[in-house]
Design a protein around this nucleic acid. Structure first.
Lengths: 211, 211
DNA sequence: GTCTATAGCCGGATAGAC
DNA sequence: GTCTATCCGGCTATAGAC
């Protein structure tokens, strides 16, 4: 059994604690206690708490976004002239995150909660969110526009945001202390995809508002 | 010009700073500095930081949820035997929050960002979220079920969560430091409702997944 | 690369005068 | 109800031995 090095252990523990307690509420001391390493090692490996936070996110998000772009590339290649199908686009965006969440729970169970936290953050974390997602958002918005030419740019923008909202709700499910007013339902990726994809396809295809 | 009392001033400033910097990152000292009151006054009026946080949320959320329930009551009365229309139900849920956000921006501009923060919180704040929303969620889920008898309970639950996700995205719009990859579009409540309602109606009515 | 020790600051909370 | 003064613990960061 390979022992993770200190740097990896720090990232793992930080990720877990950030997801459980929030970033601001997690101190470096909390992290080094649970990782069973020395306080100074965080500064040695990352330089500061802020740099640690950035690395916690980047380590997980970059591969997921790379997969999204790769799938988008494939869709755009194979279609060539005709625009990719809406459902395939949505799936290319949603599925990499969902599959990771449920199929590699040990690796991903914390970070996906954290991303929705990033989104609603009002502070400096927001900038990090933009850095990490700008390319994916731009490319997918353009592809969606080609598949839905009758939807105005403003509408498409909102529908894309609503899609993000649905994804964040999935990502932060189940709540750490489970919400009482709902029954926790199926948690395998297939069921969840089967729930969210038809919902989003119907939403994207909804008739335009007559503004 | 009526001067707000200390208690109100504290709630206002706390709300603003929580939304801007996050709750964990906002200290009581930040708050009393901007409110220009004494440090001890927070403990005098609220007892602790945690109690202040609870009150910041409750003050804003309770009236919105009361309005939602009132509108739901009316829909259920007037329909009597037949179930209320789906679009009306969605509107009764979404509209009170949206209208407040855009029509009373001074009063509501901070708290609505905060609520989406509550939702993605993994810690004790989650409990507060449940306390504040349990009744509304239960009542609306039941009403939606009656209007959509062919949708299974599990599906309805997810679609309800997706609706919350869309609402949170609206609430946290625009991001404090605006995201670069999107153009900020229309910000009046009518346009936004005209975007979100058709999206959600279509999503709720989407054909069931063939699991 | 890892550790101890500590600097120096900021946090929430409270006692007690007014 | 408001204020000052203060307790005491936790925080990030760094210096310097090994």
């Amino acid at each position: 059994m390979e022992q993770p090095d200190t740097r990896t252990k720090l990232l793992d523990v930080a990720e877990k604690l950030f997801a459980e307690k929030g970033i601001g509420a997690t101190s470096l001391r909390n992290i080094i206690a649970e990782a069973d390493v020395n306080l100074a090692s965080i500064h040695y490996h990352f330089g500061s708490k802020e740099a640690l936070v950035r690395e916690v996110f980047a380590r997980r998000i970059k591969p997921v976004n790379a997969e999204r772009l790769q799938r988008l590339d494939k869709l755009e290649e194979s279609g060539e002239q005709s625009a990719p199908e809406l459902e395939e686009l949505i799936r290319a965006f949603i599925e990499p995150a969902i599959r990771l969440k449920f199929e590699e729970p040990e690796r991903m169970k914390f970070i996906l909660r954290l991303i929705s936290l990033l989104q609603s953050d009002g502070g400096e974390l927001r900038e990090l969110f933009t850095d990490l997602f700008e390319e994916v958002a731009t490319r997918f918005l353009a592809a969606l526009q080609k598949s839905l030419p009758h939807v105005s740019q403003a509408e498409l923008f909102w529908r894309f945001k609503f899609m993000l909202g649905s994804m964040f709700m999935i990502m932060s499910h189940p709540p750490v202390h489970d919400v009482k007013f709902i029954e926790t339902s199926e948690l395998d990726p297939e069921s969840i995809l089967a729930q969210v994809i038809p919902f989003l396809v119907a939403g994207f295809e909804a008739p335009a508002a007559e503004n």
